[in-house]
Design a protein around this nucleic acid. Structure first.
Lengths: 343, 343
DNA sequence: TTGAAAGCGTTACCAG
DNA sequence: CTGGTAACGCTTTCAA
């Protein structure tokens, strides 16, 4: 770079003032002569003075930066969460450093460490599915380092959490399907300990019990939710006898792949088999048939998470208090499910 | 936070050494007694010492942070670019601060300014479509501030750019359609000055000339590429008489919406009308019919951009040299277009 | 081989 | 109302 950013010292020197005076003028602390302030402000404007956040950060031990840890970016659910976080951060002069884990514990541990190195003021994290060891988060808790967990609930960790009611959503969905006459309801899901899929699985089981429908392990397919594995999963379901009459998929991409397999095999949706997704991606209403799904408040989760971190930093709420905020999802009924008999 | 991060001073005090000695030990500069180094390293490990990037940044006037400016995150093209940037950044110990413009010039100007405030070492930017005033970038160029432009080409700006051959892709696509027998080829696109859509429009025109097909302005629909506007655009095309026999859409989402409108109106794809998208999103092969599209090397663009910035920072290439790297896209023929007669 | 001191840009405190 | 000084954590001279 040619031109260097102007510093307080530059302004002070040019104006024959002390650095302190310039600093005060710029910060408008009041204890300054209006005329002095005026000339400082003018020169600062002219020189395009920008306070150096590094210097401030060093002094205040605050970087105005928040670390965000999410599994992946190419998933509308997470990118919406990120947008929500970004909105609130932006409005409050905070920057974000985002790390992606691809659900790997190892990547997550590294991400936490990197963010700490970067001296972020707080961390918003969606813990990796495969998480079995919480020590990297527990360390943060022990240090009273501000952290908000989203989407996934590590029961061992006492932190502030923002979750969605996956259990209830699954319950409602199964209810709906049963009322529409379905009895063999399959589930393609991720059953990793922390996965939202695990909670949906629990909700599914609860619903079956409620309706006194026997649980059939064969109807549960555990998959990693990629397109390839989804196709495999759907194919496996088609080898069952009798066939399932409904399939609940862990997200809309899985549902999309599943519908393809069903249709390729000459099955009618929803007449032969109903299909349900989760997330309400932008393509879901364009699938044929339009996909029934569960719309999740991703943007809201992101905003809320960032707001909570800010409140911690401002001492408006205690750091890492045991708070669980559970946000509701919305059921979006379209045409991939048989109409419920009960209205 | 309870525990504070250990500093050199803490280690020095505990070991009764000077800060300089500890610093040297940690940096392994050689000029130090092995035994001294050993005990320093041990304590540093125990205290989980992490160098403070703020202090380093202040000293070296380098933050190891790169600013990224992209239009939006919920677009697989840009999120893939971001992944590519992130990969190389991560491998080289750089962090990213990402800003989203939603194609707004105002937001872009603000983003550049914010990034400068954050003292990023360089900027990778995909200029907003609606850009008409380049002064915010020109200032960077004048200051010899490292910058790489991606995806969109501002001819007025002499910078290092990574582009895709949109002109050629459109040309090839029209070629293909003409060879498949199409004559009334419509274009739903963004015609903003910097838009890739504009370049595709030029390629389209060139192809028409080549095949001596008269240009019909009515076949060009300028849209902002949201789902709602895409639906409107497609509906408008259906009011033409004679109907278009092919529609080239500016991205796969537009194509998806367009196909829906066509099908809702009883038209067969590709028998009545062929449809083409751009981007090859993950849902595109699942549409019915599977969408013919142009796959763009987004991940590669991201990696390349970050590599170039790094090379500038390492003085391996001059800063903001007039370099244009044009990457090829790949045509993905699926079933939404009539088979070309020529093989 | 080690230490002391200056300096990066800023704020806060204490004098005047 | 203004100025000087210390401090934040680090590297880099310069001396010892």
């Amino acid at each position: 770079m040619k031109k260097n950013q102007a510093s307080l010292k530059d302004i002070a020197k040019a104006l024959n003032l002390s650095i302190s005076t310039v600093s005060r003028a710029l910060r408008d602390t009041g204890e300054i002569h209006p005329e002095t302030q005026k000339i400082v402000l003018e020169l600062a404007e002219k020189l395009q003075y920008k306070p150096n956040p590094l210097a401030m950060g060093l002094l205040k031990n605050r970087t105005h930066t928040i670390g965000v840890i999410i599994p992946e970016i190419e998933n509308s659910y997470f990118s919406n969460i990120l947008r929500g976080i970004d909105k609130i951060a932006d409005e409050n002069g905070f920057r974000l450093i985002t790390s992606y884990t691809n659900e790997s514990q190892k990547a997550e541990v590294r991400a936490v460490n990197d963010l700490l190195c970067s001296r972020v003021d707080g961390i918003i994290a969606c813990p990796a599915n495969e998480l079995t060891d919480y020590v990297h988060f527990q360390n943060l808790v022990d240090d009273e380092f501000p952290i908000v967990h989203i989407d996934r609930d590590c029961p061992e960790l006492i932190t502030t959490k923002i979750l969605t009611n996956n259990f209830t959503s699954a319950l409602i969905m199964v209810d709906y399907l049963v009322e529409a006459g379905c009895r063999r309801i399959a589930l393609i899901t991720n059953l990793e300990p922390l996965s939202v899929g695990r909670q949906r699985y629990d909700g599914y089981q609860e619903a079956l019990r409620k309706h006194q429908i026997p649980f059939d392990r064969k109807l549960i397919i555990h998959g990693n939710l990629g397109i390839t594995t989804s196709i495999e999963a759907a194919k496996n379901l088609l080898e069952l006898d009798p066939l399932p009459d409904a399939i609940i998929c862990n997200n809309d991409t899985v549902a999309m792949a599943t519908m393809k397999v069903l249709k390729d095999n000459g099955l009618k949706i929803p007449e032969d088999i109903s299909v349900i997704g989760f997330s309400d991606d932008h393509f879901s209403s364009f699938l044929e048939p339009a996909l029934t799904t569960v719309s999740q408040p991703a943007y809201l989760i992101g905003m809320k998470a960032m707001e909570l971190i800010l409140q911690m930093l401002n001492n408006e709420i205690p750091i890492n208090k045991d708070i669980r905020i559970v946000l509701d999802s919305a059921v979006v009924i379209r045409n991939s499910t048989k109409a419920s008999l009960i209205k």
